[in-house]
Design a protein around this nucleic acid. Sequence first.
DNA 1: GGAAACTTTCTGGTAATACCAATTCTCGGA
DNA 2: TCCGAGAATTGGTATTACCAGAAAGTTTCC
Lengths: 252, 252
Amino acid sequence: MALAATKSNDRLYQDLARSLLVELSSGRYPVGSRLPAERDLAVRYEVSRPTVREAIIALEVQGLVEVRIGSGAYVRRLPGEEDRPGFNVTAFELTEARLLFEGEAAALAATQVTDADVAEIELLVQRIAEENQDPNGTESADREFHLAIARATRNVAVFNAIERLWDLRASSPEAALLHEKARHANVKPVVEEHSAVVEALRARDPNAARAAMRAHLSAVLEGLLFATEERALAEARKATQARRDRYARATA
Amino acid sequence: MALAATKSNDRLYQDLARSLLVELSSGRYPVGSRLPAERDLAVRYEVSRPTVREAIIALEVQGLVEVRIGSGAYVRRLPGEEDRPGFNVTAFELTEARLLFEGEAAALAATQVTDADVAEIELLVQRIAEENQDPNGTESADREFHLAIARATRNVAVFNAIERLWDLRASSPEAALLHEKARHANVKPVVEEHSAVVEALRARDPNAARAAMRAHLSAVLEGLLFATEERALAEARKATQARRDRYARATA
DNA sequence: GGAAACTTTCTGGTAATACCAATTCTCGGA
DNA sequence: TCCGAGAATTGGTATTACCAGAAAGTTTCC
């Protein structure tokens, strides 16, 4: 299993680190398990031991593995997992938070937007429509639409907090999945909802902007609940309780 | 300059990485400058070149240096600096964001709080009063008060986004300083403002909770503006513009 | 005299090997 | 069965060598 197959321009240690990362993600080495010995990895990946060491140190610096002298390198946490609380947020909570915060952000944005902002945001609405018609499309335009409005507030803290919500979503498999299920239902209403926000921004009407954004996210929230079967709900409640306990302890 | 003097139990590469970190912080190697060659560092610190390489890779993984083949290792950013936008947020923006978001959080919390939550939050109001009377006091109770309300929403995403705002504040020297100046003005009104929030929560009145929280943060905002001299404002505006350009590029 | 091409030198990238120290395993003895 | 000494395994570090990319210096040609 030579690394040359990866055909990257990175240095060998980076290639190797990435390969190990993939192995970690694949579940081959669960948390707590031991990686093969450096000498074995060197043979398996057809690189020298110093290169293996460099790759392992890269993982170690990122907190993914813990190296014990004379024993081996042990998996500490899996890639993608974060240490901070709030990592695995449910889709419902996430959308509820967005409903509250992005509504206010839209209201503030209505007092701060420029014509250029409005034009940019309007283009994004068009891109969202195109995305939604493509079954394999991503939802990057949707993200950009909401972040563009957050940016139009001219308040970095507002932008940053909302960006954090989208980050949470990206790192929450459940939330992303549920959205995926709820998305392609009705294209036309989605476009109308987004357009209503744009119109309120163009009119510089904070209250209308807040109302339009909240209406849109309320619709998302309802679609979400509709797509959530009873069983998923029960699981989510259970997970929520565990998380609740967790950050209660974290801030005790 | 042997590393043995550090007397640590870490591995050599970690000692060396820490030593280099100190040199970076000292300003000896500003951003953009080149570190000495690996062979030179090996001689200077009396370690082998593989060890130097390991230390440099540790810095590279953390994004502190950038290694160019055949050229050298260049300083990318200084330790302590963060790459993400929104790092150096002004006190005004921060409080404005809190005004919008914590107002909504208080409203949601009013629909979700338990009697135990209210009791806990009420105790924190008392602690805030004590803190404010001590000229050397911290403002940890204030932070806990606001986070307790965010937690009472029973929504991890809401809690997380608001926690992020407080993190931003902690990492923004300017914001912390300005608050420090504006704080000890009037103890009694501050207590009354906080108590009003608690009463609204106890009454389970979302609209009253939102109004009380917004009133409190509006007062903070005004105190902030009062404490901000003209010159500081001008500087803040300039910094804000630079930041604006920066994340406009980052998301272009 | 200046510009292009070549050469040297410096830099990081990787490999191979050896030996040390900490840990773990194994097996024989009590 | 238990335990302890020795062997085997593992990471830690050093040394050396050579390759490849980049930069600087030199030569050559116009």
